[in-house]
Design a protein around this nucleic acid. Structure first.
Length: 654
RNA sequence: GCCAACAUAGCUCAGCUGGUAGAGCAACGCUUUCGUAAAGCGUGGGUCAUCGGUUCAAAUCCGAUUGUUGGCUCCA
């Protein structure tokens, strides 16, 4: 859950009334916790965007039954109508109070976080005292509508090296109605979860035997992906991109040159070692550790050239091995850039050629932690709608702008208006970045300027940059409020140096191009996952796996329906015919549950008049029209990539 | 990877404290030929995630493994 406030008790901003309410709930939760479990050691309990939590260190493993107990105790505390009182104390007094209540384990550390000179305050309600800057409601009776939701593990201070505490999540609202509203909203949201819809609408499948986080696109999902790819390919042609294809693997040396191996090996699949090389290593009795060391080793020549070009100790001496000790292998590509770079470098370029824009729906593989995998939105193999632009320094700002406008076209066409833009800048305190500071400054300001032109609010986020350059990310929320990064535009001054890229300028001298990485969808998998939730499975006709369902009223009109089906298919429409011997109502119901945009009802009247009775999923019964008129209408709708009309009132629950 | 919960038919789920598996929907067959969200009857389908243990007996208890879910950490 996103939590934007600083976690220290030093809150620079005053709390909103809702945050105050929720934070007060945290304290009441802590009060209840200590009543039920007197040995609980408390950490912190802030409000969040959607509620509140309290982190607690407790021998007893909390269960959902405990949640009910705690909630009942919280209700009692609210009924006791305890007053929240504030007391400011000196640091020594604070230590004494914390020791007095036996909460030294975490609270002393939290106290130490408060800078010298800041006020130190405690809040008390009933018997419970907590180090806290506030603020709070005046009385616990103000807390009328709260609910404990879940228990989760959370590392103390968010550091996986620390002890994992138990976090109790809850939410609270000013009124019972608002709380009930929120809870039904949560239920509603679950109905459009892409994992649920993906199964129901047969869009994708993840199979245990194939592997975690590996998406199998079933026929219906494949249609959506294919339509999206066609759509974006059209836009790319308009904007002067060239389509390329590259393989799924590349030699380790390639990634040693780019710097992605071994520095990011934690998030990569292990290298694939050739049979011969492996046999040789085994023949030399290499232990496992030695095999890995040889895989990671580089030649003196590579080290020298990279270090010279980057002007720093990019590859340290200890990684160098004599050539006969280098073990070669292949990597499943974790990104497409090196392959595209090699295409660019395969021929000389004049400044007149630039920008060179190479695009590919490129599949990449990343070793994500198992706990992070999530349906289509976090996977281990995915296809980026990737492109790399090679341009001059002067063209950077213009090209970044072009990339942003592409992202905007995509999101507008799909009706996705609710997104935020994040400009990722480097963390000034970190040294993980490559490339020199002057170039970084230039790239960062180009991104900032481009983002300003979008007309959408954006935030600058230090530390969010890629290791090779600053970036602009488009972030969209899923149905349960989790944020996912989709489109991205990243400036890169680093890889052109590492790969020694050049072009010939007007001055007849070699110059270094700048690279821009960009992917408007981000990945087809994540984008489709978010898209399923965005449309709740009700795809616009151009994307719908099945666009038209023919529903004959009885077998008597089957022949006409079959002829019509053949015609619709010949017109390029994705149509099917329901040949079940059910009543009309049942066939309509089935088409609605399958979320087919158009159902054509065909009875005697229609067969005689060569017409169809059109039922739109979005707009209901649209009456009878000739088959010709219908075909023209739906083809126009598809060609325009029209969005579905406003939903009619929800039907009786299925 | 960590904490916790969960895993029974294609799907949604029942099966209490151990006595060898059940419903609805879906599928298939027959009857019905129907005008805008569910016609009737019948049939088939499960090594209860996997492996091991306890027991006369395990879907049920215990352990491991795999996977899923919610968080945490991570995301070039």
């Amino acid at each position: 859950m996103p939590f934007k406030r600083p976690l220290s008790s030093n809150l620079s901003m005053p709390m909103t009334p809702l945050e105050e309410l929720r934070h007060s709930c945290s304290h009441v939760l802590a009060t209840a916790l200590l009543r039920v479990f007197p040995d609980a050691k408390l950490d912190i309990g802030p409000p969040t965007d959607t509620g509140f939590y309290y982190d607690v260190d407790l021998e007893h493993k909390l269960t959902t039954d405990d949640l009910a107990r705690l909630e009942a105790e919280m209700k009692k505390i609210a009924d006791e109508n305890q007053a929240f009182t504030r007391k400011e104390v000196s640091r020594d007094e604070a230590i004494a109070i914390i020791q007095g209540i036996g909460q030294e384990r975490y609270k002393l550390g939290r106290l130490a976080d408060i800078p010298e000179g800041e006020k130190i305050s405690f809040y008390q309600n009933g018997e419970f005292v907590d180090l806290c800057a506030g603020t709070h409601v005046r009385y616990t009776s103000k807390l009328k509508a709260f609910k404990l939701l879940s228990i989760a593990g959370a590392y103390h201070r968010g550091d996986e090296k620390n002890k994992q505490l138990q976090r109790i999540y809850g939410t609270a609202f000013p009124s019972k109605d608002e709380l009930a509203n929120y809870l039904t909203q949560l239920e509603q949201a679950k109905l459009r979860d892409h994992r649920k819809l993906g199964r129901e609408l047969k869009l994708f499948h993840i199979d245990e035997d194939v592997g975690q986080g590996l998406i199998l696109w079933t026929p219906n999902g494949a249609v959506i992906r294919q339509e999206l790819q066609t759509f974006i390919s059209e836009e790319l042609r308009k904007q002067g991109y060239h389509q390329v294809f590259t393989p799924h693997i590349g030699k380790l040396e390639l990634y040693k040159t780019s710097g992605h191996f071994p520095y990011y090996k934690e998030s990569q699949f292990s290298p694939v070692i050739e049979n011969d090389s492996l046999a040789r290593a085994i023949g030399e009795n290499c232990a496992c550790g030695e095999v890995f060391a040889r895989l990671e080793a580089v030649s003196g020549k590579l080290r020298e050239s990279i270090n010279q070009r980057t002007g720093r100790e990019a590859i340290t001496a200890d990684r160098v091995r004599p050539d006969d000790q280098l073990l070669d292998g292949f990597m499943l590509k974790p990104m497409n850039c090196p392959h595209h770079i090699k295409i660019f470098a395969s021929q000389p370029h004049s400044y007149r050629d630039l920008p060179v824009r190479l695009a590919e729906f490129g599949t990449v593989y990343r070793w994500e932690q198992s706990g992070e995998l999530n349906g289509m939105t976090r996977v281990r193999g995915f296809t980026q709608d990737d492109a790399h632009l090679f341009c001059t320094e002067e063209q950077v700002a213009q090209e970044v702008l072009g990339c942003l406008s592409l992202v905007k076209i995509v999101l507008t066409t799909l009706g996705m208006q609710d997104y935020r833009v994040r400009v990722g800048l480097r963390d000034p305190d970190s040294n993980k970045y490559t490339g020199d500071a002057a170039n970084w400054d230039k790239a960062e300001s180009a991104c900032r300027e481009a983002a300003k032109t979008l007309g959408v609010p954006f935030t600058e986020e230090p530390g969010e940059a890629a290791f090779y350059g600053p970036k602009i990310d488009f972030v969209i929320k899923d149905v349960i409020g989790r944020e996912w990064q989709l489109g991205t535009v990243q400036v890169d001054y680093n890889l052109p140096i590492r790969f020694d890229l050049s072009y010939i300028g007007a001055d007849n001298a070699a110059h270094r191009p700048v690279m821009i990485h960009r992917a408007p969808f981000g990945s087809m998998e994540r984008f489709c996952g978010v898209l399923i939730e965005h449309f709740a499975g009700d795809f616009p006709t151009w994307l719908a796996p099945e666009q038209v369902r023919l529903v004959p009223i009885s077998d008597k009109t089957l022949d006409y329906a079959r002829g019509l089906l053949a015609r619709l298919k010949a017109e390029g429409l994705r149509a099917t015919l329901d040949e079940h011997s059910d009543k009309l109502g049942a066939k309509i119901r089935r088409a609605e549950l399958d979320k087919v945009p158009y159902t054509l009802v065909i009875g005697q009247k229609e067969a005689e008049a060569q017409s169809v009775s059109v039922r739109s999923r979005a707009r209901g019964d649209e009456g009878v029209m000739t088959a010709d008129a219908y075909i023209a209408k739906v083809k126009a709708e598809i060609a325009a990539r029209a969005l579905p009309d406003k939903k009619k009132a929800a039907p009786a629950s299925p």
